[in-house]
Nucleic acid binder design. Sequence first.
DNA 1: TCAATATATATCGACACCGAGGTATGCTCA
DNA 2: TGAGCATACCTCGGTGTCGATATATATTGA
Lengths: 179, 179
Amino acid sequence: MLELAILGFLSDHPLHGYELRKRVAALMGHVRPVADGTLYPAIKRLAAAGWVTRKDEPGAAAAPRRVLYLTEDGRAELERRLREPADLDISDENRWFTLLAFLRHLDEPGAQAAVLRRRLTFLEEPTSFFYDGERPMAAEEFADPFRQGLLVIAQATSQAELTWLRNTIADLESTPAAG
Amino acid sequence: MLELAILGFLSDHPLHGYELRKRVAALMGHVRPVADGTLYPAIKRLAAAGWVTRKDEPGAAAAPRRVLYLTEDGRAELERRLREPADLDISDENRWFTLLAFLRHLDEPGAQAAVLRRRLTFLEEPTSFFYDGERPMAAEEFADPFRQGLLVIAQATSQAELTWLRNTIADLESTPAAG
DNA sequence: TCAATATATATCGACACCGAGGTATGCTCA
DNA sequence: TGAGCATACCTCGGTGTCGATATATATTGA
């Protein structure tokens, strides 16, 4: 998820680590802050894989910067990760939102629609959080207001997303294929 | 998060690992499946800390079961974790939902309301996912339909939860303190 | 001149998690 | 009798993440 975000941000502009950190923090930091000890090893991994290159530049305000550039291999890797996301990228909200933030870098509307369809399929699956034996329990069955809330919120959330997904898939599939 | 779920489920009933696995899977498995290699070490940690005890029983259908019981220390630990959750438990959806699923085990309405207030404060903070320099960008500013969707969904989601939070906090705070 | 702050990069140990694999029991059906 | 499956528990290696810590420069204000 972090690696995807790095590849995605670098796909827009070359960035140095500090700026990258700020963008990553803006995207998902309010939900799950990213520590330096997570970011820099991640950059190192991507560099070792040949997906980003580093160039030293004098610092604008302070210490010298190591500006990161996405390589051609890196762009291909980004596309691969967007085109064929893991199941966890589809089901986990944090990962899914990160994917969504960079899905425009997949430039075929058909491929974009295919990814949205996977999320649609996932959200359309009937799932319950709690069971009475085999039988899924509805919100109204709980005396517990917190479990009620859990189900009510989850339902409202997925309704909003389902609406958006269906509209956007329809738009994408009515778009003539990009040339 | 997993440890909280284990303590929470055991607070309802003693369970053996296999049954516990099914309940944990129902609660959060569709979003993020829990592997055996995660569950059993977690049980071991809780046992080592003295929060659960294990008793062997003949298996109902097959291999013998190790039934898990929450100890008094375990119940105290559960309460502590519910009463004073880490910031990450408040901000991260997966963790927050897990907390919500067991919040009824905190039996003071005032303490429950205090936890909900923390979530309310978090959701009321103005946050944006993307910035143009310092300026947060609104959904309409993106040509990118995916980033638009991201913001629209996030907003709809938090609206639903805000409504529920405000109503539930009001209910809890009008409840006479539990004896 | 000194302290504080923002900029900027990086390492290290501890640890939770995942995936793969292993062990074993008892039921069902061929 | 044997294969296959559901039940039931557990270990281990690899890895990603966190929190603490270290280093260094430039600006700002007391």
